[in-house]
Write a protein that binds this DNA or RNA. Structure first.
Lengths: 102, 102
DNA sequence: TCAGTATATGTCAGAATTGACATACTGTGA
DNA sequence: TCACAGTATGTCAATTCTGACATATACTGA
């Protein structure tokens, strides 16, 4: 990961800490965050492709507009579980999910 | 999904309810559960392949033996997040994770 | 400019998940 | 049989995640 990515993550609210801490991000931690971001982006792309508003998607998954916004923003309080549920609700297949996180 | 699967899920503690309820399991709900079970099985297979006890794996992911047991059992109180973290800790790549859930 | 719609951000009480513990079960070598 | 290692199951307080709400910001058309 490069500095650009670090800045991106910091901006999104992830606790990155010092540069030293950042460099200590283990492979697993990086992979985990990358997976979440990939799911976030996929969710947003899918929603837009299907011409739905955040509000409409929220209703479909029994959540709220604000939480959908956080899901798409890669907010650290959003779980992979929720992202997966959202994507499945948008009709994304397991196969496509698998491709997304890879 | 067939009756065999229903029984399997019930046995594992998922609230399946009546047969009618069961039949109402939406495509998304089924996919979600199937993904979790696939991750569970992968975790167990990986741990055993690497000749680790549940206790050892627990220490590696800063959890407990009992929770690892629940992870492998497909317990409904276990999140996808935790399963993913466990698999990443075992050295599974994003690519392999993707293949697992597909 | 301004109203209307969509999205973003901050907060919080309630719900779900967590690690830890106790304890039960299972297999296995002596 | 028995002790022991590994795993399973039940419980619970603490932590984390959640939907909901208020409010801010961004964009668009009139």
């Amino acid at each position: 990961m490069d500095k650009r990515k670090q800045a991106k993550l910091k901006k999104k609210g992830w606790k990155v800490g010092t540069v030293a801490d950042f460099l200590d991000l283990s492979t697993e931690e990086s992979a985990y965050i990358e997976m979440k971001l990939a799911l976030s982006e996929k969710l947003k792309a899918r929603r837009i492709r299907q011409k739905l508003t955040q509000k409409q998607l929220a209703k479909a998954i029994e959540s709220s507009q604000s939480r959908v916004a956080k899901m798409e923003a890669g907010d650290p309080t959003v779980s992979i579980d929720l992202l997966v549920k959202g994507l499945l609700a948008l009709g994304v297949s397991k196969k496509e999910l698998g491709r997304t996180i890879s």
